[in-house]
Each structure stands twice: as C-alpha cells, then as structure tokens.
Write a protein that binds this DNA or RNA. Sequence first.
DNA 1: CATATTTAAGTGTATATACACTTTTTGTGG
DNA 2: CCACAAAAAGTGTATATACACTTAAATATG
Lengths: 155, 155
Amino acid sequence: MTKYDTTCDLGQCSLIGQTCAVFNLRKASRAVTKLYEEILKPSGILPTQFTLLVVTRAFGPVTISSMAEMLVMDRTTLTRNLKPLEREGLLRVVPGKDDKRSREVSPTNKGLEQLEEALPLWQEAQYRVEHALGSVRLDRLLDDLTAVVSAARSA
Amino acid sequence: MTKYDTTCDLGQCSLIGQTCAVFNLRKASRAVTKLYEEILKPSGILPTQFTLLVVTRAFGPVTISSMAEMLVMDRTTLTRNLKPLEREGLLRVVPGKDDKRSREVSPTNKGLEQLEEALPLWQEAQYRVEHALGSVRLDRLLDDLTAVVSAARSA
DNA sequence: CATATTTAAGTGTATATACACTTTTTGTGG
DNA sequence: CCACAAAAAGTGTATATACACTTAAATATG
C-alpha cells in the first residue's frame, strides 16, 4: 500500500478530462490565447508580447531575472521571448550599470506607441471574456488562478 | 467615442497583471505544468503526452481532427505533438479504413503500460494541488475553466 | 589578495503551439 | 462521368516553453 490511493486504473481515463488540473489549465490557456490573438492582431503584437511590453512599461528598467520572477516564467524562456520585441525595436536590453552581469529591459518609444495602440484592443478582449463569462465569475477565476500559482509553487 | 471605454492609458499598465485573463491563465498554466512535469518525470512522459495517451486510451481509435476538437487544440499542433509518442512507440497512427484521407490514433501495448505507470504519479500531482488549493476551490476552478473555454470560443 | 562560490545571463536542444499553404481524397452537380 | 467544392491531413515557419550546460562577473573566504 503506497502513500496514495493507486486504485485508479486505465478504465478511469475517460474521467481525467474533467478532473485533470494541468489539462484543463492548458486547454483554457489555448482557447483564451486564441481569442486575444485574434483581437490583438491589428496591433501586430501577440498576447505574450503584450504582457512583456506592459511589464516593462510598468516596472522598467528591470533585469531579466526579476522580470522572469514577476511573470512566473523561466528566465531562459524570457530571454527567448524578448528576442522578437528587440528585433522589432519595441524593447531595449542594455547591460546594467552597477552589475555588469545583469541586463536591463525597457520599452522604446516605438514600443510605447505600439502598446498604446494595443491597449484598447486588449480592453475589448477583456470585455468580451467578461461579457461571455460574467464579471463575478471572471473575478473569481482570476482569484483562483492566482491561488493555484501559489499552490503549485508551494506544493 | 468608440464602442468601448478606451480611457485606459499607459499609466494603468501596473494593474493589468491582476486583471488580464490571458496573462493569468498562461501564468497558471506554466506554474502547474512545471509541477506535473516534476512529478511525472519518473514515468518519462510529459503532461501533454500524458493527456494524449489518456484520450487515446479512453476514446481510441480516434482521427486526428476529432481528437484535436476534444482537446481544443489546433489540428496541426496535435499532429506535431503525436510525433514524440509515435517515435517512442507509445501511440500508433494508421490510415482510416473507410476514409483514406483520415488517420486513426491508438495506444500501443507499450503506451498502455507506460500510462499505467504514470497514472499514480498523475494522481499524486492531483492530490498535491487539491491539498494546497482545497478541494472546493479546485472543483470551482475546474468548473470555471470549462466555462471560460466556452466563453472564449463563443465570444 | 587570491581563490572559491555564488549569481546573472546566454546556448543547445526538445517539446508545445498555431497560422498559411499544400496535397490527397471524398462528395456533389451537371 | 467529370469538374468542382469540401474535408482530412501534412509542411514551412514562427513564437512559447524550459532543462542542462556554459560563461562571465560579483562576492565571500581563507
């Protein structure tokens, strides 16, 4: 007898779709990402890129590591995700003044302009989700998502 | 005056982290995926691969398109995601009998063995999230995730 | 002060994701 | 039957994700 109930067998596979946390989170992530992508399309930036612009606008200049921590994103993932935005001249990444190991990320003027252009589109996407889901339920979901991040990180 | 309130300006960027649906979903997806990956590691399969094995075990043989619809995953994404499992001999993909355009996916014996090995690990991951989040809140989250998928698809 | 350790970041590799486009097969009207 | 539309799937390309490993700089330690 192990620590956990392992009586689950292959016959219960059809139930996993309703109960599996990681599957349902990833599925919802795909569905909602698709909606935001469609709506943000005229701005030319993808949902993740929008997020990076927002963070640098709010907290920049920020180091790669501190930014990764805020986003709950692996540092090396963030390094890669910054690349398209650097290439398009929307973000600037420069060596840190005090600590020469670090690199600091800031939005460029072009990045801020494009962010300003994207903001009403993001707002519309938010409204659509809020309208379709209900604002009470959306607030509850956002709250539970924050909680599950803490849960997963402490578990 | 547009249809939506576009008074949101760059100064509100610091609030977006708490309210943005797509950011919070993707963030939670990253955090929970990481946990499941760690726990599933001894089984040698990743969370997405576990999901694909479960679906084929429960509903196989299934065509690529029908499977993609169940998973709310782009068909071409699924095609690519099947590759590692085919390569490892855990899934079999064969041309459909009636319709020669289609291809049907089934688990192999090796796939079923590996799934059986992964199931108690998946169960443990579920327990850990349930314990850290609370079973009431987890059930509510799963329910809201299902709802937000419908919301995003209909919005 | 010299060395060892720790820390910030980048690279190689692999999976995950999806759009635009193409190929093959099925069905459908005439 | 034939041409055309619809459907199933694959490919090219690009972003997103993260682990293992490496490099370079800062800090601690003797």
